[in-house]
Amino acid sequence: MTKDQELTPEKVVKYFIDEFKPKIKDIKIKERAAGSKKNKTPSIWMKIDNSAFKGAVKHLCDLQFPHLAIISGNDLGKTIELIYHFTLNYGNRLGEINLNISVELPKSKPKIETICDYIPGALITEREKQEFLGVKIIGIPDDRRLFLPDDIPKGIYPWRRDETGPEKLYKNLHEVKK
């Protein structure tokens, strides 16, 4: 972790662009100041094409082993967006860089490759995405359900906003008469 003392958000972005130029879109570097001294925390947002995603994670691991905080997901109508929230360069005072890599998957074929072989800690969050968003993770070491109970029917994904969403299972307890 010491060799990259000088890692800056610009360097990280350049590192990715050099390798995956046409497959990366919407690169933004945002900075947010806080406190009296207005020290800034940088965060990078980028969109990567699904075909280059696994390579990008490997590329990232070559730069520095990242901490994967969580994968969050959005149902955007026609596509499902997964956002991988990484943090880099931790262990240095005010030196941390947030890296948010988003991947859009078409709903007709929501498949993405696992990153568990590079980052074993991703297993829990990948299992969660699989059951909550109906994304198929290819090559996941353990594909059982994690949070959902066994009696929830297959093909219902609680975070979807379409017909596979959880609407059918609602029980409006507040409608019970007072």
């Binding site: 406190g35 905080a69 005010l94 800690g121």
Partner: peptide, 29 residues
Amino acid sequence: KLCAVGPTTRASGVKKDVRVDTSYFAYGD
């Protein structure tokens, strides 16, 4: 590797603490 956080990871010698790593609230000051 397993992305542990907080006192659990720091007790294993990984320096990772959001308060120190980033500037949010007044921790940066």
